[in-house]
């Protein structure tokens, strides 16, 4: 086993202190900024631990989209909401005490567990994964795991994203979002978006394609597409369709539905559910990945648009109602 180098120790200390910053900083706005940095440093440590797929996903999704959502959530915190932000959830003393006891318990067992787990490293599934890799239709083992060996999990996971969008629909007020005038939105930003969005879509396509043989895949590409969508929304909100419209809805379920259809097809031809015969595996995986990328990208854009509702970003720069956080 490789011994840890000073740079490893430094990275771990950095991660821990950033986490402390996120949780401890008195100013929630700064907490969120540190959280984004924390996500990026986490991505660095994924790379260090030979998990570049995760690094991409974390940077794009964990730090990127979720970070932006956090920022928007804070930005929406106006005068009257300050009280709400510090409002206690119903946590009685019993819970807190039991929580503390729990931590003590976990620390005790954790010390035991981590150390003995380290003494007897598990066998893992490295060998079987690589042995059958040539049958999976892709050469990136992580893609093989999530879209072939354990495709059922990923199918349900796409279901989770679909579910979040459904929840947002179910809680949105019925009237359609109104956009007063496009003049409010920054022209610079718009021309920037015009230039950069094609690049982002191109990069998403590349990530999707590359997922078969190197780090990348549907989730990373979807997050990139989501970023492009958010940028479009920022620069020209009127352009964005109402996500509840037919076309948007169709695209939202595309990933989930394509899994269903291919799974049923596989069963009709006498295979197991979600089994890809090895000569068709590449095409099947590419199909569900493309559909999922579209769905993920649109879901993320939709989430952003619904969290941001009413306050469309650059406009607030000039509105004067917002306080500096």
């Amino acid at each position: 086993m490789a011994a840890a180098t000073p740079s490893d120790i430094l990275l771990c200390l950095l991660i821990l202190s950033l986490a402390l910053g996120v949780l401890g900083d008195a100013n929630p706005f700064r907490g969120v900024i540190i959280f984004i940095v924390f996500g990026l440093v986490m991505a660095l440590s994924w790379t260090r631990l030979d998990a570049p797929d995760l690094a991409l996903a974390e940077a794009a999704l964990g730090a990127g989209v979720i970070g932006v959502l956090f920022l928007v959530a804070l930005r929406k915190q106006g005068e009257k909401d300050v009280s709400l932000a510090t409002q206690r959830l119903r946590l009685n003393s019993v819970t807190i005490i039991s929580g503390l006891l729990l931590i003590v318990f976990i620390v005790y067992l954790g010390a035991l567990g981590v150390f003995s787990a380290w003494k007897t490293p598990g066998k893992g599934l490295v060998e079987p994964v690589y042995e059958s890799l040539h049958l999976t239709g892709v050469s990136n083992p992580v893609t093989a795991v999530i879209l072939n060996y354990r495709a059922y999990d990923t199918f349900l996971e796409i279901g989770v994203l679909y579910l979040v969008m459904l929840s947002v629909f179910a809680l949105q007020p019925d009237e359609k979002a109104k956009f007063t005038s496009t003049e409010q939105y920054d022209r610079m930003l718009r021309s920037y978006a015009r230039g950069i969005v094609p690049f982002m879509v191109l990069a998403a396509g590349y990530l999707l394609w590359a997922g078969a043989f190197r780090p990348g895949g549907a989730f990373q590409a979807g997050a990139m597409l989501g970023g492009a969508g958010i940028l479009l929304h920022l620069s020209r909100p009127a352009m964005l369709l109402d996500m509840r419209g037919l076309v948007a809805r169709l695209s939202l379920v595309a990933g989930f539905f394509s899994f269903c259809i291919l799974g049923i097809l596989a069963m009709l031809y006498g295979f197991d559910f979600l089994q890809w015969p090895s000569h068709l595996a590449k095409h099947a995986i590419l199909t569900v990945e493309t559909a999922s990328t579209l769905s993920i990208g649109l879901t993320l854009t939709g989430l952003y648009a619904s969290v941001e509702r009413k306050l469309i970003s650059p406009a607030i720069f000039y509105s004067g109602e917002e306080d500096n956080p």
């Binding site: 920054d186 610079m188 930003l189 920037y192 950069i196 720069f317």
Partner: peptide, 9 residues
Amino acid sequence: YASALNGYL
């Protein structure tokens, strides 16, 4: 390209 715009915003 990006930093020019970010600076402006």
